[in-house]
């Protein structure tokens, strides 16, 4: 039997085959190309349905669902996992000029709503204006916050800890590398003490953070620590 025929047969009952069987068949160039066309064709047909499906009523209903849902911000310290394979995705984001305010305390970037000649440079801040043609989506979503609480949505632990380490003037040490890329949802408030932050982050089961003086030690807990 040709491999491609086998692929189509497998697609008829995808659940009957294991991960390794799928990887094996899709390692074949011809099969991968065929699968790729199946996926694209499916996408094209999915797009077709959209025009009929999206009505003003649907948009209204979805807006209601959104605006009546509890605001993430209003919740008290929501903590849950969003662990995903790390993927730095670069998006083209054209013609945006933002003023980056580099503070030595939390590395926020503020969007440039303020006028050029405002004079709140009394703090020792260094202001640089940059034009960005390409920014990573993480930079957009994760630095969009202003000086107050900071929301990390789907951000790698390493990046969160880098911010926090600078904020609390401590260093971070990783016992094993896999914890770095764990992605988390975490809301930081300016009034949190370092110990409070550690306690909150330790609610995530996939890693533990210990404090030793001015050092945070991060260990992933695959071995089933409770």
């Amino acid at each position: 039997m040709r491999k491609t025929e086998q692929l189509l047969e497998m697609l008829e009952h995808p659940e009957r085959y294991s991960e390794s069987q799928w990887q094996e068949i899709l390692a074949d160039d011809e099969c991968r190309e065929l699968y790729s066309m199946m996926a694209k064709t499916q996408g094209a047909f999915a797009a077709d349905n959209v025009d009929a499906e999206v009505t003003d009523e649907m948009i209204d209903a979805e807006w209601q669902r959104l605006s009546s849902a509890p605001h993430k911000k209003a919740e008290i310290a929501p903590l849950w996992h969003k662990i995903s394979a790390a993927a730095a995705i670069v998006v083209a984001f054209f013609g945006i000029t933002i003023a980056a305010v580099q503070t030595n305390f939390f590395g926020f970037v503020q969007s440039k709503e303020k006028s050029e000649n405002d004079t709140e440079t009394t703090v020792k801040e260094e202001r640089t204006e940059v034009t960005l043609d390409e920014v990573t989506i993480e930079q957009i979503t994760d630095t969009i916050a202003t000086a107050e609480p900071h929301l990390y949505d789907n951000v790698p632990l390493e990046q969160i800890l880098n911010d926090l380490a600078a904020r609390y003037n401590v260093t971070v040490e990783y016992r094993n590398a896999d914890a770095r890329s764990l992605r988390l949802y975490y809301e930081w408030q300016p009034d949190y003490t370092l110990d409070k932050v550690i306690e909150m982050l330790n609610n995530f089961e996939s890693f533990t953070i210990q404090r030793e003086g001015n050092k945070l030690i991060v260990e992933s807990s695959q071995e089933g620590k409770q």
């Binding site: 959104l66 849902a69 605001h71 993430k72 911000k73 969007s111 709503e113 979503t141 969009i144 916050a145 202003t146 107050e148 929301l151 949505d153």
Partner: peptide
């Protein structure tokens, strides 16, 4: 996507 926009402060 919009829930996150609502939670952020930026316009």
């Amino acid at each position: 996507v919009f829930a996150q926009l609502l939670a952020n402060d930026a316009l």
